[in-house]
């Protein structure tokens, strides 16, 4: 078994799992953080995107042992009890998600982008979301939502 202790959404968590456990399985099966989805399990669809040490990555492409001691943010770590994250709020307002399965991954990718680049161009947003497949084809509304969230995060617009 592989013992891991890591920070998930600001909280220290530990588990002992078989070495072949992926970060995604660790999050979903050990910690019941099911917001990160298993879509393809090979790093193509982006439904499992989480932020590790500040960078968005595919949770299905990391082993649990590799994240020992590292900092992980999942979709569950974005909203507070009082309020949604501006990106989540924008996604709701713009009805950016249809079936919703790709949503948590897309929102995490968007957060990864806005954390590094508060004023992205449309092309930069497209590039940041290119690792997130949406089969309901809702990209237009997602891009609009990311732009809106960016305006709110920059303080140019009041949150609705």
């Amino acid at each position: 078994m592989t013992d891991v202790t890591l920070t998930i959404n600001g909280e220290e968590r530990s588990a002992s799992v078989p070495p072949e456990t992926s970060l995604l399985r660790l999050l979903r099966d050990e910690f019941y953080l099911t917001g990160s989805k298993l879509g393809c399990d090979v790093g193509d669809c982006g439904a499992c995107t989480v932020i590790v040490d500040g960078m968005p990555v595919n949770a299905c492409l990391m082993l649990a042992g590799q994240v020992d001691g590292r900092d992980v943010v999942t979709i569950e770590g974005l909203a507070t009890l009082e309020d949604l994250h501006p990106i989540q709020k924008a996604f709701e307002e713009f009805a950016s998600l249809q079936c919703g399965f790709c949503g948590p991954g897309v929102i995490i990718s968007a957060k990864g982008l806005l954390d590094r680049n508060p004023d992205p161009t449309k092309e930069e947003i497209k590039d940041a979301l290119s690792g997130n497949l949406c089969r309901c084809t809702g990209y237009t509304k997602m891009i609009e939502a990311v732009q809106d969230a960016a305006r709110i995060l920059r303080g140019e617009k009041e949150a609705a």
């Binding site: 790093g43 968005p56 990555v57 595919n58 492409l61 990391m62 990864g112 290119s130 690792g131």
Partner: peptide
Amino acid sequence: IGAVQTRNL
């Protein structure tokens, strides 16, 4: 190469 997530890894 790939997409943001795979380039980060």
